[in-house]
């Protein structure tokens, strides 16, 4: 079956795309799926990780996935979504070669990558933090401690709760907005699936709200204590003033600050997202903390 990608692909438009591909009971609709890119006009960083994640999920279900690209010779505009995808490394990953001769990783992005739990820390230091430090012209990278903790919390969450040990990562810097977007997605069982095994929640949105509260843990490890996502919120909302969006199974969560108050909005979608997408939007003016030593006191 042939599926046309949405003209604007992001975390909001993904549900119609997913409903074309996956039944409500979480089965693929066909054993062969052709993804037609001709309708795609614009894709956000979250859209790239979502698309990558869905393809990974389909391949895991033994679905044959084909890519149908528009006539590349007629694409002259370098703002086109296909060139953006090519620059991200998307086609190199799946088709083993870049589609345009002048394709290159843009300085405002890092390459799309599947990052395993074992390698995330070196990727964090050598790729994400190094790229960000270069983009923001900061020489001493030790002041990115809050960001590093955030990424660590997300990968610990993937390892402990998703049943997978791999996350797909893509990030973009928007210098004009003083903002970076980091999208991390896994195709594991999803946070609500795990939470609802232990806690009585009426839906996936409620399960996500519970997952970000300190102290609520599925005890997937004896030492787990339900602090990781709360710690993630602590930096992004409390220190940085950024935003977090989580999509997992049928749950959607949006967190930001208004004044000094944390605003948490949850909702249920009709369509199931196979896994978890965490999108964090961080302000670049508050992402860096001066790495001064501070005496510890109880």
């Amino acid at each position: 079956m042939e599926i046309f990608l949405p003209d604007h692909f992001d975390r909001n438009s993904m549900y119609s795309f997913i409903s074309d591909i996956i039944y409500e009971d979480n089965r693929p609709k066909n054993k062969e799926i052709i993804l037609n890119f001709s309708s795609l006009e614009f894709i956000k960083p979250s859209g790239i990780t979502i698309l990558h994640n869905i393809i990974q999920w389909l391949l895991r279900q033994n679905v044959k996935v084909y890519v149908d690209l528009p006539d590349l010779s007629k694409i002259a505009d370098n703002r086109n979504s296909v060139t953006y995808l090519d620059d991200s490394g998307f086609f190199e990953y799946y088709l083993k070669k870049r589609q345009f001769e002048n394709s290159h990783v843009r300085p405002t992005t890092i390459p799309l990558k599947n990052v395993t739990f074992e390698e995330y820390y070196s990727w964090l230091d050598n790729t994400l933090v190094a790229w960000l430090a270069h983009s923001l012209q900061i020489a001493d990278t030790s002041g990115f401690s809050g960001l590093k903790t955030c990424i660590g919390e997300i990968f610990n969450n993937i390892k402990d709760h998703s049943g997978e040990k791999i996350g797909c990562v893509f990030a973009q810097h928007y210098p004009a907005n003083n903002e970076i977007e980091i999208a991390i997605s896994d195709f594991g069982v999803g946070i609500p699936c795990q939470i609802r095994k232990k806690f009585d929640c009426k839906n996936d949105a409620e399960a996500l709200e519970l997952a970000i509260k300190e102290g609520y843990t599925t005890k997937s490890l004896p030492t787990n204590r339900g602090a990781g996502l709360e710690n993630l919120l602590g930096f992004v909302l409390g220190y940085n003033g950024g935003r977090i969006y989580i999509h997992s199974n049928k749950g959607k969560l949006e967190c930001h600050v208004a004044g000094s108050e944390k605003v948490i909005k949850s909702d249920n979608s009709e369509q199931f997202y196979p896994g978890t997408l965490v999108l964090i939007k961080l302000r670049t003016d508050t992402i860096y903390e001066e790495p001064d030593e501070e005496d510890f006191s109880w």
Binding site: G146, T149, G215, R225, A227, N231, E289, E293, F296
Partner: peptide, 22 residues
């Protein structure tokens, strides 16, 4: 010792929750 603000906050906050709030 030789910590920073972020490290101190996480350690203190975790102990506070586990000894008072849990």
């Amino acid at each position: 010792i030789s910590t920073n603000k972020s490290i101190n906050q996480i350690i203190r906050k975790r102990f506070k929750f586990e000894t008072e709030d849990r």
